[in-house]
Protein backbone atom coordinates (compact mmCIF):
# COMPACT_ATOMS: atom_id res chain seq x y z
CA UNK A 1 0.00 0.00 0.00
CA UNK A 2 0.91 3.61 -0.17
CA UNK A 3 3.11 4.04 2.86
CA UNK A 4 4.44 7.48 1.95
CA UNK A 5 0.98 9.06 1.88
CA UNK A 6 0.11 7.27 5.10
CA UNK A 7 3.27 8.49 6.78
CA UNK A 8 2.48 12.03 5.69
CA UNK A 9 -0.97 11.73 7.29
CA UNK A 10 0.60 10.22 10.40
CA UNK A 11 3.12 13.04 10.76
CA UNK A 12 0.43 15.64 10.06
CA UNK A 13 -1.63 14.26 12.95
CA UNK A 14 1.42 14.20 15.23
CA UNK A 15 2.36 17.79 14.37
CA UNK A 16 -1.22 18.97 14.79
CA UNK A 17 -1.53 17.29 18.20
CA UNK A 18 1.88 18.63 19.29
CA UNK A 19 0.88 22.18 18.49
CA UNK A 20 -2.32 21.79 20.48
CA UNK A 21 -0.51 20.36 23.50
CA UNK A 22 2.42 22.81 23.46
CA UNK A 23 4.94 20.09 22.87
CA UNK A 24 8.57 21.10 22.33
CA UNK A 25 9.75 17.78 21.01
CA UNK A 26 8.26 14.43 20.08
CA UNK A 27 10.44 11.56 21.28
CA UNK A 28 8.40 8.46 20.57
CA UNK A 29 5.35 7.76 18.43
CA UNK A 30 3.42 4.57 19.15
CA UNK A 31 1.47 3.07 16.28
CA UNK A 32 -0.92 0.14 16.21
CA UNK A 33 -0.71 -1.84 13.01
CA UNK A 34 -2.84 -4.88 12.29
CA UNK A 35 -0.90 -8.06 11.57
CA UNK A 36 -3.03 -8.86 8.54
CA UNK A 37 -3.61 -5.26 7.49
CA UNK A 38 -2.53 -3.53 4.34
CA UNK A 39 0.52 -1.78 5.71
CA UNK A 40 4.13 -2.80 5.43
CA UNK A 41 5.68 -1.73 8.77
CA UNK A 42 9.26 -1.62 7.44
CA UNK A 43 8.25 0.65 4.61
CA UNK A 44 6.46 2.90 7.09
CA UNK A 45 9.64 3.16 9.16
CA UNK A 46 11.62 4.00 6.06
CA UNK A 47 9.22 6.83 5.20
CA UNK A 48 8.92 8.00 8.81
CA UNK A 49 12.54 9.16 9.03
CA UNK A 50 12.26 11.07 5.78
CA UNK A 51 8.87 12.66 6.44
CA UNK A 52 9.62 13.78 10.03
CA UNK A 53 12.75 15.64 8.95
CA UNK A 54 12.35 19.35 9.71
CA UNK A 55 9.25 18.76 11.88
CA UNK A 56 8.76 18.65 15.62
CA UNK A 57 9.01 14.88 15.35
CA UNK A 58 12.45 14.83 13.75
CA UNK A 59 14.55 12.06 15.28
CA UNK A 60 11.57 10.52 17.07
CA UNK A 61 11.48 6.78 17.51
CA UNK A 62 8.63 4.87 15.90
CA UNK A 63 7.26 2.05 18.01
CA UNK A 64 4.98 -0.33 16.22
CA UNK A 65 2.54 -2.47 18.18
CA UNK A 66 1.22 -5.39 16.17
CA UNK A 67 -2.46 -6.18 16.62
CA UNK A 68 -3.20 -9.86 15.91
CA UNK A 69 -5.82 -10.74 13.35
CA UNK A 70 -9.24 -12.01 14.36
CA UNK A 71 -12.59 -12.48 12.70
CA UNK A 72 -16.18 -13.46 13.37
CA UNK A 73 -17.02 -16.81 11.82
CA UNK A 74 -20.66 -16.88 10.76
CA UNK A 75 -20.78 -20.66 10.69
CA UNK A 76 -19.16 -21.23 14.09
CA UNK A 77 -20.84 -18.15 15.58
CA UNK A 78 -17.74 -16.98 17.40
CA UNK A 79 -14.54 -15.00 17.14
CA UNK A 80 -11.62 -16.95 15.70
CA UNK A 81 -7.97 -16.01 15.15
CA UNK A 82 -7.01 -15.10 11.59
CA UNK A 83 -3.49 -15.34 10.23
CA UNK A 84 -4.37 -14.45 6.66
CA UNK A 85 -6.40 -11.64 5.22
CA UNK A 86 -9.56 -13.13 3.67
CA UNK A 87 -8.47 -16.45 5.12
CA UNK A 88 -10.67 -19.37 6.11
CA UNK A 89 -11.92 -20.10 9.63
CA UNK A 90 -9.25 -22.22 11.36
CA UNK A 91 -11.96 -24.35 12.99
CA UNK A 92 -14.51 -25.07 10.28
CA UNK A 93 -12.46 -24.25 7.21
CA UNK A 94 -15.21 -22.10 5.67
CA UNK A 95 -14.52 -18.63 4.40
CA UNK A 96 -17.54 -17.03 6.00
CA UNK A 97 -15.37 -14.94 8.27
CA UNK A 98 -15.76 -11.22 8.80
CA UNK A 99 -12.47 -9.65 9.85
CA UNK A 100 -12.86 -7.84 13.18
CA UNK A 101 -9.23 -7.16 14.13
CA UNK A 102 -5.87 -7.07 12.44
CA UNK A 103 -6.56 -4.23 10.01
CA UNK A 104 -5.64 -1.41 12.42
CA UNK A 105 -3.67 1.63 11.44
CA UNK A 106 -3.86 3.92 14.43
CA UNK A 107 -1.67 6.32 16.31
CA UNK A 108 -2.09 5.23 19.90
CA UNK A 109 0.03 7.79 21.73
CA UNK A 110 3.26 9.71 21.71
CA UNK A 111 5.94 10.50 24.26
CA UNK A 112 6.83 14.17 24.30
CA UNK A 113 8.75 16.81 26.22
Amino acid sequence: MHELALTESLVAIVVEESRRQNVSQVKVVVLEIGAIGQVEPESLRFCFDAVTRGTIAEGARLDIVTVPGAGWCLDCGKTVPLTERFGACPECGQRHVQMTAGDELRIREMEVT
Partner: peptide, 15 residues
Protein backbone atom coordinates in the same frame (compact mmCIF):
# COMPACT_ATOMS: atom_id res chain seq x y z
CA UNK B 1 11.70 13.09 33.81
CA UNK B 2 9.58 15.76 32.24
CA UNK B 3 8.45 13.51 29.43
CA UNK B 4 4.78 12.89 29.16
CA UNK B 5 2.59 10.63 27.16
CA UNK B 6 -0.06 12.08 24.91
CA UNK B 7 -2.90 9.75 24.02
CA UNK B 8 -4.00 10.26 20.43
CA UNK B 9 -6.04 7.22 19.37
CA UNK B 10 -6.64 8.34 15.84
CA UNK B 11 -6.80 6.37 12.64
CA UNK B 12 -4.22 7.51 10.14
CA UNK B 13 -6.81 7.31 7.40
CA UNK B 14 -9.28 9.42 9.41
CA UNK B 15 -8.43 12.56 7.45
Amino acid sequence: DQDRIVRIERDILSK
